[in-house]
Amino acid sequence: MADEVRRVEADGWHDAVAAAVASGLAWFDWLGGVDEIGRADAIRVTIRLAASPDADGVRLETLVPRDGSALASVADVVTGAAWHEREVRDFFGVGFTGGDERPLLLREGAVGHPLRRDAVLAARVVRPWPGAKEPGETVAAGRRRMVPPGVPNPDVWGEREGDPASPEEVAASVQGGRVRRRR
């Protein structure tokens, strides 16, 4: 069993979803986002539809530029997608025109979009990470620094001089592991 994947342009999103529903794919499974940074300067939005819960599904995907662009909401044809669109707006900062504007999971007025890969978990930068120690160490020695996932390399964030790092640089440096000094 494998889903068919249909890639559509962002401005054809609503029509493509409406056409899929009209063709009999009336069972809505989920809608979600993926930050494509590093491959594209975009958030990928995916909706999975099927004829029935057990049938093979179809995934429609589109890329929405990261810089605050919006997709047309599909809540008028897939009512259940409204919550998922609100979640994608909260977590990835993709707008859905014609959709429900209220935050779903973040508090009113929250800053940032936590599932973007360049979102820095600031509380994790200030709190010492218990995993920084090496086996056999009682206290973390400074020579080989380990950083946890979600915390960028200090060269990129925090101790850096000059221009702020680009989202690509921040995202590439928050994957954890040994800190490699960049020249």
Partner: peptide, 22 residues
């Protein structure tokens, strides 16, 4: 336990702490 630190580093909540010496 060999104090390998794997659980400490994998824990998503940072709630394990261990201390060891060789």
């Amino acid at each position: 336990c060999t104090s390998c630190m794997i659980c400490v580093r994998e824990c998503p909540a940072w709630c394990i702490a261990l201390s060891s010496h060789s």
